[in-house]
């Protein structure tokens, strides 16, 4: 309830609302898309949205609070590292010789 208190809309709120929209879009794409690369991109859109929310809502009324900024930077570093890792796995999987378990990831392979 407090979140929606009738204060004037600040720049922080615009960032946060944009972030919420991005998060929803990314989540939708994650559910709808089946290809691993698209899912990775979708997760990154969600990540961008979350960072915008974190930075936008963390802005104080006048001064900029350094803590959310520090959290966002750490979060971006983690996200970049994981995206590189995920992309590397997707490349590996694409290069791997066609094995029976490919295309049906739901089944544990023997």
């Amino acid at each position: 309830m407090e979140l929606l208190a009738p204060e004037p809309v600040s720049a922080g709120h615009i960032y946060a609302v944009t972030g919420a929209i991005l998060t929803a879009l990314g989540f939708y794409a994650f559910i709808v898309r089946r290809h691993a690369l698209r899912q990775l991109l979708a997760v990154n859109v969600v990540g961008a949205g979350v960072f915008l929310i974190l930075g936008g809502l963390g802005r104080g009324p006048d001064a900029i609070d350094p803590m959310p900024q520090a959290l966002v930077i750490t979060g971006i570093v983690v996200a970049v590292a994981l995206t590189a890792f995920g992309a590397a796995m997707i490349v590996r999987l694409a290069e791997a010789p066609r094995s029976p378990d490919q295309g049906k990831a739901g089944k544990p392979d023997a």
Partner: peptide
């Protein structure tokens, strides 16, 4: 293939967690 599936769902879980952290920070 199983690891990639695990990775995707785990990353989504992490971001849901991080979104919660963002709300708590604010």
């Amino acid at each position: 293939a199983a690891a990639l599936r695990y990775f995707m769902i785990a990353m989504l879980g992490s971001l849901a967690y991080l979104l919660g952290v963002a709300l708590l920070v604010a």
